[in-house]
Computed example of a mutant assay.
Amino acid sequence: MQSRNDNATSETVVLSTDAAGLASAAEVLRAGGLIAFPTETVYGLGADARQSDAVAGIFAAKGRPSFNPLIVHVADLAAAEALVTFTPQAYRLAQAFWPGALTLVLPLRAGSGVSSLVTAGLATLAVRVPDHPVAQGLLRAFGGPVAAPSANPSGRISPTTPAHVLTGLNGRIAGIVDGGACGVGVESTIVDVTGDPVLLRAGGIPAEVLAEALGAPLAHPSAEGTIAAPGMMASHYAPQGAVRLNATAALPGEVLLGFGAVAGDLTLSRSGDLREAAANLFDCLHRLDAMAATAIAVAPVPNHGLGAAINDRLRRAAAPRD
């Protein structure tokens, strides 16, 4: 298998989740190559976080702006402690929600070995412990930190199945570990805990749940336009077609993505279940691309719990594009 990413490789190899498959994937990472792998949220595009050439390969494969930092995935809290300095609030959140769909932004430790390309030159690092047996198996087989944004071209729909990954990145990465469909379906929640906790991105763990664990609500970023963590760009997660939000019916030429009582050509959840909607969101957007939909109307989704994460992704999908 070709290991290093040259932005135009041979066809991407699909690897199994058994010990041999994970060992092969770990060897590619050690050699500086790119491996897509499942987490409980979405598929990640992994590289050794300590190899700048490998991390640069992520940006090349995704066409991702270099000022957008990456999340580093580690196997456990001890591995995270080797990379960042924990605050008391960070320990409280990690102990309550790791492994899980929570990313913490913390001060980078001197001598961590993490490439500056991962942090986009910031003095902080976004780190999480994934709650997925395949991700855990790969991290332990590799034995180091893995930088892994979502495994899709930059700004496009995040992948929740191996087929989604191959549609966007086949031939641009060395391999993909086929772990089936992801369960959560939206990316991790990101919280800056360098000081008082700040919600940087809504995600798989609702902000209300995090606030309950902390005993206080989370603040929101004070500086508009600052890219302090992954997934904060205004236009992101975008399908090919133009997106119109909060629609109760389709206009001529539109394909309607429904939710609850608003029936659509496709639906996030007929029963109005936010967990089901989160799991279906990116798959529905991929299906709209497959339908060559040029105009997409999306039904209203309640803006609480996982609905806040769903609406965040939909707003970015609908944002004006460069």
Rank of each mutant, 00 (worst) to 15 (best):
A36T: 05
F37L: 11
P38I: 12
P38Q: 14
T39D: 10
T39G: 09
E40C: 10
E40L: 08
E40D: 07
E40K: 08
T41Q: 09
L45A: 11
L45F: 03
G46L: 10
R50T: 15
S52E: 15
S52R: 14
S52Y: 00
A54G: 07
V55T: 08
V55H: 06
V55W: 12
A56T: 13
G57F: 13
G57M: 11
I58M: 11
I58W: 12
F59C: 00
F59D: 02
F59M: 02
A60Y: 06
A60V: 12
A60Q: 12
K62R: 10
R64S: 13
P65F: 13
P65I: 13
N68E: 15
N68F: 06
P69T: 12
P69L: 13
L70M: 11
L70W: 03
I71G: 02
I71W: 10
I71E: 00
V72L: 10
V72R: 07
V74I: 14
A75K: 08
D76G: 05
D76T: 03
L77H: 11
A79K: 04
A79L: 04
A79G: 12
A79N: 02
A80F: 01
A80K: 02
E81W: 04
E81H: 06
E81R: 07
A82D: 02
L83T: 10
L83A: 07
L83G: 00
V84A: 04
T85K: 09
T85C: 08
F86M: 05
T87L: 04
Y91V: 05
R92I: 05
Q95T: 09
A96K: 06
A96T: 14
A96M: 00
A96P: 07
F97Y: 12
W98S: 02
P99W: 09
L102N: 07
L102V: 08
T103I: 03
L104W: 03
V105C: 09
V105G: 01
L106G: 00
L108H: 02
L108V: 06
R109S: 05
R109N: 14
R109M: 07
A110Y: 01
A110M: 12
G111Q: 07
S112G: 15
G113Y: 00
G113C: 04
V114L: 06
S115G: 03
S116V: 10
S116M: 11
S116H: 12
S116P: 02
S116G: 00
L117K: 14
L117E: 14
L117H: 13
L117C: 01
V118P: 02
V118T: 08
V118I: 09
V118R: 01
A120E: 10
G121R: 01
L122H: 05
A123P: 00
A123H: 10
T124I: 09
L125K: 01
L125T: 04
A126W: 03
A126V: 02
V127R: 00
V127W: 01
R128W: 00
R128V: 06
V129T: 13
V129I: 14
P130L: 14
D131S: 15
P133E: 15
V134W: 12
V134H: 13
V134Y: 11
A135I: 12
A135P: 05
Q136L: 14
G137Y: 10
L139H: 10
L139A: 11
R140T: 15
A141H: 09
F142Q: 04
G143Q: 04
G144K: 11
